[in-house]
Every structure is written in structure tokens, then in C-alpha cells.
Write a protein that binds this DNA or RNA. Structure first.
Lengths: 140, 140
DNA sequence: TTATTAGTCTACAAAGTTTGTAGAGTTTAT
DNA sequence: ATAAACTCTACAAACTTTGTAGACTAATAA
């Protein structure tokens, strides 16, 4: 399941996308609008900034803003950043690969091959959906 | 990511499937063959028994055995049992449904609809792969 | 240049989950 | 009766997630 961190990130990104015209937005404003602990949200926004998704301005009139267009921020990117690997096994992860210790030969391990399929099917969706796809219905 | 519990379950089921002819198999034998803590494995096998996947015999000559054919035990069943929901959000789970508190209307919530797609794509694989598909290449 | 505002950073704490252990109890075959 | 082997309860260690506290830094405006 997606962690709260991930869900909060989507909420915050949706809010920023819907208010792009207003320039920099306060953490506090997002936290109140989306009912998220402000301090917790700080960490999340900082992660998004370090990843190059958000920019920020300090001092009076400061806040956070989108650096990329909403339609350029894929769900996969955000999930990987805040939730971790999308794959179900480390040996099948594209971004967090590790040997799993179970398959001696990944080319013939049945579990490995099945989990590759699951990963690819999942990615075919979340690599092609973006923050833009989240807004519009006023649901998130 | 799949938990160790889930992976151990697949290992144990594979072992039982490959040794169906030998009748009841000791926990200890599986634990040693697959290098799993015996006490931990006990819990897992008990879960599988309570779910109707395995049967057991107590006392001398006892052990665990498959109740269903390997090709009737889907990966989805085992993952749900030991790993929890397959869906990424509670509001999208078929077996562990809960309101997520984010979507006021599931019929129009964009995130909900996307997560339904992810769930369905995943299920299309793991509902159709079984323990039988894990054995044969001697990898698990 | 000083006060204020707002993001940054480090550290920690509470809660929950996963993983694993201990030991007594129960059932069955011999 | 005895030993073998599953069953059950309880607990503990390790890890992760979620959230909090407070000092620090940068930018703006008076």
C-alpha cells in the first residue's frame, strides 16, 4: 500500500498544480488546505525539491512552487521517491536493484520472471500518468 | 515489496508441491531445505492451513501436505494471505476494502480510477499464475 | 541594518509492523 | 506410556513510518 508520505506528496503536488498562477505557496497553506501535519509536510516537500520536482524561495513572500509542468511529473517518479521501489522483489527493481538471494539465475527463475511482468504492467500505467491526471475532478 | 513471510510461503509451497508424493512433510525438513527459521515457518504454515491451502497431521509420521493441487493455488491467494492487500489504496482493494478518506466520490476520483487500473493489471497476472508455475526450473 | 518571515537541517520520539524466539499444550502412532 | 510433531500464546528485538522540537539560514522590507 502507498504510505501516507506518498499520498501527502500527491495532495501537495495537486494543490501546487492547481495554484501555479499564484507563485510560491506557503507550506502552511498546503498543510491547512490538505490537512497534513506541517512539520511532516516540510520533509516531503524538501524531498521533492531535492529531486528537482519543486523549487522554493526563502524569506517573506517565499514558499514552494512547481519546477516542472504537472504533465511532466509522472506518478512513478513520486512513488519511487517517497514510497520506494515499485517492484515486488529487489531483483526485479529498475531503480533499486539488489540481488534477492533466491534466484540463482534471474533468466530462468520463475518467480523473477513473473514479478518482472507485474512490474512492467504496473509501470505501463504509472509511468504514463502524471500530476496533471490527478487534478481537474477536484477529488484529490 | 513482498515480505519475507510471503517469500517463505512460496518457498514452502514449492517444496511441498515438488514432494507431493512423499505424503506429510516435517516443518523441520522444509525449514532446513529452504533455510528458514523453523519457528517462524510454523506460523506461516499454520496460516496456510487455516486458509485451507494446506493440511496437517499431528504426531509421529505427521507433517504438512498440500490440500489443493499446485495449479489451483494462485499467487494472488498467497500474497493476500501473507502480504496483505494487493491494491495500492484501501479504497481500491477487493479483499481489504476501506474508505480511504481522500476520495469523496470513488466514481470520479482520479487517483482512485488510476489505482483501480494498477490493481487490475496486477491481478490479471497473479490471479493466473499458480504454485505450479513456480516449480520446474528448480529456482525457488 | 535590523526585524520578520519562511524554508533547511538535525535530532529525536511515539507508534506500528515485521521478524523471530520460548515454552507449554495437544494430538497421534507405536 | 512414550516420543514425535503440530498448535497456541506470549513476548522481544529490529525496523519502518509518522510525527515533533528546535536551532539555523536566507531573503525581504522597513
Amino acid at each position: 500500500m502507498l504510505s501516507k508520505k506518498t499520498k501527502y506528496a500527491f495532495h501537495a503536488l495537486s494543490y501546487l498544480a492547481e495554484n501555479q498562477d499564484k507563485g510560491a505557496i506557503l507550506i502552511q497553506e498546503i498543510a491547512e488546505a490538505k490537512n497534513i501535519s506541517q512539520k511532516f509536510l516540510e520533509c516531503i516537500l524538501l524531498d521533492l525539491k531535492k529531486a528537482g520536482v519543486l523549487g522554493s524561495k526563502k524569506g517573506k513572500g517565499g514558499g514552494y512552487y512547481l519546477i516542472k509542468k504537472p504533465e511532466e511529473i509522472t506518478l512513478a517518479r513520486i512513488i519511487r521517491l517517497l514510497n520506494g521501489p515499485i517492484a515486488w522483489l529487489p531483483c526485479v527493481s529498475l531503480n533499486y536493484y539488489e540481488k534477492c538471494g533466491d534466484c540463482q539465475d534471474e533468466a530462468t527463475c520463475n518467480m523473477h520472471l513473473i514479478m518482472c511482468q507485474v512490474r512492467d504492467q504496473t509501470l505501463s500505467i504509472v509511468e504514463n500518468k502524471t500530476v496533471q491526471d490527478l487534478i481537474g475532478s477536484k477529488q484529490l
